[in-house]
């Protein structure tokens, strides 16, 4: 698990320290390193906890982190305890003045929507982690070779039956721009799970016509060795990719997330 930093923290808010050495939920009895903080503005947040403005939360401070009662600050936090109230684990805080440029930039990019700022952070992370990032359009979708009855009927009938079966599909992506890594041809093949099982449901399910930015990883997941029918026009040696995280695809109609992914890709591309 990657360590969580101020940049990657899922929940960022501006608040005022109400009581140092205190907590406001019963599961926390040792308050030596906690503080109750009133949330005044949320800068970045997943949807499930975006409604805490005006509420008090318990912040468990990071090692060596100090706050004072009455102090106003921007806190960068991750989850700690979810009970009758919320407790979060701080990864650090900045003074309101010091954080002002970050808050302003984030607010502007996200249109003041902290959940959009969260999505942009995720898009940025995935683009940074991916070896190849492209802008493109899905021009065809079909079964992966492992799913086609004609080519591998023996494999299909003899394979395991599991509720977590991925049911691989292939999307052919017409590449319009390469932001990171190399793309030897104008089209590439993207394998994705067609399964609606809990294990795979968060992976993007691609459809022909979708346009946007794709954060791509060479396929080391599927067992397919040949291209499926949708990709029949590509060279058999074409590199295949996967994009399994929900943030690996940013649709074109989400321009702020697209911009975040492209910017992150370019900033981490090797020249």
């Amino acid at each position: 698990m990657a360590s969580i930093t101020k940049e990657s923290a899922a929940f960022v808010f501006r608040g005022t320290v109400k009581r140092k050495g205190a907590a406001n939920l019963k599961a926390i009895t040792d308050t030596g390193r906690t503080a109750v903080v009133t949330v005044e503005e949320i800068v970045r947040s997943p949807p499930a906890i975006a409604g805490f403005v005006g509420q008090d939360v318990t912040v468990r401070l990071a090692d060596q982190e100090q706050v004072a009662s009455g102090e106003k600050a921007v806190f960068y936090v991750t989850g700690f305890v979810f009970g009758e109230r919320l407790a979060v684990q701080s990864v650090g805080h900045d003074s309101v003045t010091g954080a002002r440029p970050m808050v302003a930039a984030s607010t502007q990019a996200a249109g003041g929507d902290p959940t959009r700022a969260f999505r942009q952070t995720k898009a940025r992370e995935r683009a940074q982690a991916a070896p190849v990032v492209v802008t493109g359009k899905v021009v065809a979708v079909g079964l992966a070779d492992s799913e086609t009855t004609g080519a591998t009927s023996a494999a299909i009938t003899s394979r395991r039956v599991s509720e977590h079966e991925p049911f691989w599909r292939e999307a052919v992506v017409e590449v319009e721009a390469v932001h990171k890594g190399t793309m030897p041809s104008q089209q590439c093949v993207l394998r994705f799970p067609g399964s609606s099982d809990v294990r795979w449901h968060r992976s993007p399910k691609f459809q022909a016509g979708q346009e946007g930015v794709f954060s791509l990883h060479p396929d080391r997941v599927t067992s397919s060795t040949r291209l499926g029918p949708a990709a029949h026009s590509l060279a058999a040696s074409a590199t295949t990719y996967t994009a399994l995280s929900s943030a690996d695809f940013q649709p074109a109609d989400h321009p702020a997330e697209v911009a975040a992914a492209v910017s992150a890709a370019q900033s981490t591309a090797t020249t």
């Binding site: 949807p47 499930a48 109230r85």
Partner: peptide
């Protein structure tokens, strides 16, 4: 929990 009142996940 009350603090997750906004969640919409399928907790099956």
């Amino acid at each position: 929990p009350k603090s997750l009142s906004s969640e919409t996940n399928q907790d099956s």
